[in-house]
Structure formats: C-alpha cells, structure tokens
Design a protein around this nucleic acid. Structure first.
Lengths: 140, 140
DNA sequence: ATGGGTGCAAAGGATTTGCAACATT
DNA sequence: AATGTTGCAAATCCTTTGCACCCAT
C-alpha cells in the first residue's frame, strides 16, 4: 500500500469519512514525524479554521482503535501518532525526546509468546538511548 | 540478585536512602504488579501516614532515572512502575488494561539497530492483545 | 550549620465529557 | 427526520512546582 490516499485508507479500515477525518489522515500519511494531537491540530487549523482540538483527539483515538494509525506512548510526557502502520520500531532519545523510525530486519522480532493467559495481537519494539546531536553536545 | 533487599538495592544504584525511599523500593520489590504512583502511595500510607504523593512521584522518577526501577508507558492512561529490572517483556490487554510479565527466551530480541544517528542503551518489547478473562467474557 | 529530602498547597497541562448545533443520508 | 459528527465550554485528572520545614551529617 505505497502512495496511500487518505480517503481510501479510511475506507479500508472501516472508518466513515468526513472532511476532518480525511484531513487528519492526510496529514498523518504525509508527515511520518510522529506528531502529537496538538501538532496535528495546529497544522490543520490553517486550512480548517473551525477545527476543534476535541475532534483531533476523537479522530486520532478512532484511528488507533481501528488500526489505521498507531499510538506511540514511548515518551511519558507526550503521546504521538504514527500513520505508518507497517511493522517497524522506534528510537527515542532520552535526553531530547526525539523519536526516530527504526527498520527492523526480517525476523528480528518474530518471537511470539504463547500463553494460556492471553492472545497477542500486536508486537511493539522500541529503543531508548542518546541521539547523535545530544551526544555531540555532551562530548563538546 | 535474587532476594533483593531494598536498602542494598538503593545503594547499588547510588541512591541516597531515606525511610520513604526504602519503603517505596521495598514495595516495588515485593509487588511485581506494575503499580501506579497512586497505588504505591495508597498502600504505603497505612505505614507512613505522613507520606505525600509528591514524594512518591519524586522517588519513582528518581528510581527510574537511576535504573533502579522501570517506568512502563504501555498504557496511555496510566504510567506503571516495575521493580523487576531484569530483561523481560510485557503484555497488555487492550480491553481491561491488565499488564502481565512475559519471559523472553534467550536471543528473542538480541537484534540491536546500528545507526550513525543514535546509540541504543535500552530495548523495550511489549505485546498487546486480549487477555483470557476478557476473551471469555466476549465468547459467553 | 548545611545540604538534601519531604510534604503541603497551588499551579499547570493534558484529556475527557456533556451537550447543542450541524451535516449528510 | 434520523444518525452520526463536530466543536465549545466546563470538568476532571494527573503531574509538577514553589516553598517552608525537617532530618541527618
């Protein structure tokens, strides 16, 4: 599903389209920057002046419930959203909080725990450490 | 480090001990239940009536900064803490929010991304799905 | 006496809720 | 008309902050 289109993506995940939902999905698909609710809201306000933050909250939650976007809770200070729902991991800098995508090689995380206690539906992998620019600041 | 003792654990991680810190660490070591700040606070209030929630916040943050406890941000609704800092994963039920420990077999996650952009210090793995009791409720 | 630790009260922020207005079918 | 969506305002909840007090060294 390269070149994803916002409307088709909504339909694909069984989400009833609206002007707001299309705009928000379009934003996610064009900005793989892990935006927060506020960042999406501020960006789209220019185009949709009546947009409310409540709608952005509702919509992003709806997307993540339908699997149309991923909610990232790696940083305890801010929840981010990712329109890239293909399997990949993330890296967060513990100093500046920057979030980067990490491609996982085939088979890197294909272990799935088996248990009578639960049925796994999603696997999440992330890394924490220091990013290049923070490391350079410290070294200097 | 089986049979971990609260005071020794604090010393081991370079944390200056106090009555409150020992009590909180002791709680974490005896309750691998992924408690929230509030759960720790309420439990310890019985023994230390003057304890303030601010101190629990400060202390758990201190612990996680020193690597003496792990902060779990899997559930966007509540931050939990884990006194078990040995490598293991977690499972969260998307329906009831229950958090379970998952033992990872040797080598399950030993892939470490190499990048010029960052230096990885920690790997985190968690799973989401449906727990047994929620599945049974639905099936019924 | 000094520095760090604690705890209260208040402030600050993020998210959710209730409800009325609106759009779409 | 009916259903679902939106957006405002208010409420709520979680977490942090500022500051004074206290304890241990």
């Amino acid at each position: 599903m390269s070149e994803r289109n916002a409307l088709d993506t909504l339909k694909h995940y069984g989400i009833h389209p609206s002007v707001q939902r299309i705009a928000i999905m379009d934003y996610l698909l064009k900005h793989y920057t892990h935006p927060t609710v506020d960042e999406v809201y501020v960006s789209l306000c220019k185009d949709i002046p009546t947009l409310s933050k409540t709608t952005v909250y509702n919509t992003l939650r709806l997307f993540s419930e339908h699997g149309a976007a991923q909610m990232l809770t790696i940083d305890e200070k801010k929840i981010c959203f990712d329109g890239n729902v293909t399997p990949h991991a993330h890296f967060m800098c513990r100093r500046c909080g920057k979030l980067l995508d990490v491609d996982l090689p085939e088979g890197a995380v294909d272990y799935l725990p088996e248990s009578k206690e639960f049925r796994v539906e999603e696997t999440h992998v992330y890394y924490k450490g220091i990013c290049k620019s923070c490391a350079e600041k410290t070294d200097a």
